[in-house]
Design a protein around this nucleic acid. Structure first.
Length: 442
RNA sequence: GGAGAGGUGGCAGAGUGGUCGAAUGCGCCGGUUUGCUAAAUCGGUGACUGGGGAAACCUGGUCCGCAGGUUCGAAUCCUGUCCUCUCCGCCA
């Protein structure tokens, strides 16, 4: 099997903490450039340094005020007591003044800090999307079809599988009804993915489809911005999730996990909602870029030294799922310029879609990211080693098991036959209840 | 949705303005004794963050759901908010 391990070199776990940025300013700056992020690292360093100075002064004033407060109970008479009170008040006022100054600076520093992306795996290709590197291909090879190829929209119409018009009428463009065998395929894909993942020791979950703004931000999404991908609920601090990564990662926010529970693997089924703001004009016919779909997501919390292996493991599982469906695909090591903020490294599976473009194209169907401690810092998820003092941040990883809408495209288009029928992948037949969609009458 | 009660350390649970980072018990770590296990007994045992030190360690600050407020001083009083529980209503 071609499931070779990728990149076994084990770099020291990167820690994008404030101290690290102060001590490695140039490295962080270069990293931002590689990722195409404009973050004023120098300004941040200056602000952060000033914050530290101010913080010390504030703590000294607090200390003095505490001493004064404690002495009041022991004061001999009212006059002395009053004098001490005034003294204490003055000290607190001085402290408050410095504190509000600090708050202003810290807010600016915080804004820069939050805009900084994670560090990057040394082997991730540097550059824009065009520099992304193909790591390997799936077991099934792309075969030219010897008949006029239809795309999934045409096939779905022929077999009455998807109602785009109905979806648009009730919710707008980008929504759809799955019908008939498409529904059975969705359910089969859920079962198929869950069967593998549960067997691999993942804890299966069905997650909320909504989450608080704080959780979205911890994972690295920006709700309610002008270009946001996120639908928000009016009058509530709730958002429709774009992926179960949000809810699965958020599940442990603020928690301290015992070391011996790690690595902790979860998988979750959720609906995913995306506004796709700014995505107009990109190739997005049919099911490819929709506002709602179902996804089975993998998520893991690991020790820092486990995350790289877990990342490769996620990628292997994705490969097994698509090999098992008989779909040709390639694995891409995403280039730095195309990485989102949280990802340290990201592998994508791109499935062959015969109906895409003029004569077939690869289209992204899964994505597995190692976010190291980036999300854990924002969500405050730590682990504790028995017998050791203190706690450390866990690493988090997420990967798509099956994104139903895109998997449907790949299945429908790859499994179309010369006679117009669609063969149901063998692995799904036991749930779909048939081997073929449509009759071979021709 | 309405009414009430409550959110304290790994857990349970005291604490209603200062001596409280917080009693007590459990758990955990270490010592002693008996020793087959167990029991008994003594001591230790929260997190975050700053400074000093090679280190052991020493020394500040912050934290009692979260955010504000009152006060010289807040776990304790006030406001908002989130969550949990009980009862009622509604409902798949």
């Amino acid at each position: 099997m071609a499931r070779t391990r990728i990149a076994c070199a084990r770099p020291v776990a990167p820690m994008l903490d404030k101290r690290f940025i102060l001590d490695n300013t140039e490295l962080v700056q270069t990293n931002c450039e590689h990722r195409g992020v404009k973050a004023d690292v120098l300004r941040y360093v200056a602000l952060e340094t000033e914050c530290r100075q101010l913080q010390q002064e504030i703590e000294e004033l607090s200390r003095q005020a505490n001493v004064v407060s404690k002495s009041i109970g022991k004061a001999k008479d009212d006059a002395e007591r009053q004098q001490r009170k005034d003294e204490g008040r003055t000290l607190r006022e001085q402290k408050d003044e410095k504190q509000s100054h600090l708050d202003r600076i810290a807010a600016e520093a915080g804004a820069i800090y939050r805009s900084m992306p994670n560090l990057t795996h040394p082997e991730a290709p540097i550059g824009d999307e065009a520099h992304s590197r193909e790591l390997r291909q799936g077991e099934v090879e792309v075969r030219p079809l010897s008949f006029p190829v239809l795309d999934h929209v045409e096939l779905a119409e022929q077999h009455d599988l998807i109602d785009f018009e109905g979806g648009a009428r009730i919710a707008g463009n980008g929504f759809y009804f799955l019908k008939n065998e498409a529904v059975l395929l969705e359910l089969a894909l859920q079962q198929y993915a869950m069967e593998l993942l549960v067997g691999e020791g993942f804890v299966p979950t069905i997650t909320p489809d909504l989450a608080r703004g704080e959780i979205l931000q911890g994972i690295g999404f920006i709700p309610r911005g002008p270009e946001t991908q996120i639908y928000s609920i009016e009058n509530h601090d709730l958002n429709l999730v774009a992926t179960a990564e949000i809810t699965l990662g958020g599940l442990y926010s603020g928690q301290v996990i015992d070391q011996d529970q790690l690595p902790l693997k979860l998988c979750g089924i959720s609906h995913c909602f995306r506004t796709e703001a700014g995505a107009a004009g990109r190739a997005s016919r049919g099911l490819y870029r929709v506002h709602q779909f179902t996804k089975i997501e993998m998520f893991a919390f690991t020790l820092p030294e486990q995350s790289e292996d877990m990342h490769n493991y996620f990628c292997d599982l994705e490969c097994r799922l698509f090999d098992g469906l008989g779909i040709p695909y390639r694995v891409i090591d995403t280039a730095t310029g195309d990485l989102g903020g949280p990802a340290y490294r990201k592998f994508d599976l791109e499935a062959w879609m015969p109906g895409r473009g003029s004569s077939g194209e690869y289209g992204e169907v899964t994505s597995a990211s190692n976010c190291t401690d980036y999300q854990a810092r924002r969500l405050n998820i730590r682990y504790k080693v028995k017998g050791e003092k203190g706690t450390n941040f866990v690493h988090t990883l997420n990967g798509t098991a099956i994104a139903i809408s895109r998997a449907l495209i790949a299945i429908i288009e790859n499994c179309q036959q010369a006679d117009g029928t669609i063969v149901v992948p063998e692995a799904l037949q036991k749930w779909v209840g048939k081997a073929r969609i449509g009759s071979a009458a021709g």
